[in-house]
Design a protein around this nucleic acid. Structure first.
Lengths: 97, 97
DNA sequence: GTGACTAGGTAGTGGTGCTACCTTGTCCGC
DNA sequence: GCGGACAAGGTAGCACCACTACCTAGTCAC
């Protein structure tokens, strides 16, 4: 769930962890703590869905920039389709007719 | 997540575990195994969101019929509202603009 | 030089859903 | 009349995931 939102946030352009958290919060998903976000980013990196490289910080510590890999892009669009179906089913189940 | 779907299934009328699983499967949520469903029902019962009573089986073992408690009804409608907001946010996050 | 802020990471925990397995009851086919 | 299929409920253990708490390191302002 969180992983897919992170992929979606990265679909808006490459970014680093701290800024991804801000994108997610701006998207209404609440504040995602570092201890939640960074393990998710490491998972996605190990799965090959995102690729990362370190860059010097702009007034602050170095940043690790993440961007979608081709696998990540296809995983995101396939997950988005699955998500739409799942949402339709769950919403129908939760609404009392 | 599953708990809310179970509440939704019970909002269609009181039922027992085996039939709830069939309602969920008919709703497109896939086949929910007993080892998944029954712990969820026990959770909901301990939380007071559903109430249950045993009745003699109709050609088969006894059945435990569950129905929504007043707390369960309010929990379901409040969860459905939260779910709608959450879905909107996640869907927006996962769709690449 | 101390604190605030940015940035990333690890350790441990709790909840949740899964598989696997068990028990009881009825009915059907051989 | 016995074994298997099926209905119905339950428990045990495992794996994953998100969370809290904590740690490290860099820069800047006071």
């Amino acid at each position: 769930m969180l992983d897919l939102c992170v992929l979606g946030a990265l679909a808006r352009g490459e970014s680093y962890g701290y800024e991804i958290a801000q994108r997610l919060e701006a998207g209404g998903l609440g504040s995602i703590a570092g201890g939640t976000l960074y393990p998710a980013l490491l998972r996605l990196e190990r799965l090959g869905l995102v690729v990362a490289d370190w860059r010097a910080g702009d007034g602050g510590p170095a940043r690790k920039y993440y961007r979608l890999s081709p696998d990540g892009t296809t995983a995101l669009s396939s997950a988005a389709a699955d998500w739409a179906v799942f949402v339709d089913n769950v919403t129908a189940m939760m609404e009392v007719p």
